[in-house]
Design a protein around this nucleic acid. Sequence first.
DNA 1: AAAAATACTTGCTAAAGACAACTATTTTTA
DNA 2: TAAAAATAGTTGTCTTTAGCAAGTATTTTT
Lengths: 142, 142
Amino acid sequence: MDEKVVKEIRAFNRSYVRTIGLLQNSILNSGYSLTEAHILNEVNSKQDSTATSINQELKLDEGYLSRVIKKLISKSLIIKEQSLTDKRVFVINPTDKGINEYQKLDKLASKMVKNNMEHLSHIQQIELADLLGKVKALLKKE
Amino acid sequence: MDEKVVKEIRAFNRSYVRTIGLLQNSILNSGYSLTEAHILNEVNSKQDSTATSINQELKLDEGYLSRVIKKLISKSLIIKEQSLTDKRVFVINPTDKGINEYQKLDKLASKMVKNNMEHLSHIQQIELADLLGKVKALLKKE
DNA sequence: AAAAATACTTGCTAAAGACAACTATTTTTA
DNA sequence: TAAAAATAGTTGTCTTTAGCAAGTATTTTT
């Protein structure tokens, strides 16, 4: 494989990690940890999540996940109900408060992205979205 | 600002974070924490680093950085010498072992990137590098 | 010369996460 | 169908990572 290509990709990764890192840190100022925000996102993105389904995405330690879920329950952001068909399983859904908080986080994340792009002209912004879309498409082909 | 653009960028961030996250985790299996790897990178990238110069890039807690540096010294990966011209300053450089370990990490990171791209054709790889270069250029304009 | 700033360190604490052992339930298999 | 294995989740314990505040030493500013 072309070393030049690898070099270019790694240079991009380094610079982009820093950018995304800053966006993520802004979420940390919202009162939720990154993991909590991710779980909130999972639970709000699909109905009847379970610890297992959440962890298929997040790949955390199960014990740790269990505790974070407990914490989110204690904050009344999610509820957990034992499945009637399989009593090993506990179905998780957001409360109204959880939906609300998630939407706040979502808006915050959008705002951060906007702030990060605001020095670009409108045409450049469209170009950026176009470029990223193409990259995503290339990398999706598994 | 165009909501569609923001949406596209956020979708990209999500998918890319996952990709980079996997690469970073592979480094974690090398026996060094991400922070240690970053410091090793800093110290190997430029001569006579200092805690302050490292932190201009990494932006860690100063106390924590001080301790991680101490740990790397105890592992004989870096050495620290008091500056003769300004005794507040301690100049940091990699040892031979530190240079060696850094090169190992560097190769590992390249390998991971390669693995991640290997399902792409040569033309697609070049296209990817080209797209990422353009994105980086767009975002660099501060 | 005193005050402020810089460079770094240390004590203390909390958060994030890993590992192993455990309960409860369901599925597989011999 | 009873025993074994697998699945889903929890809890105890520990380490790592990191942040905050107060400290030392030195240099710069006033």
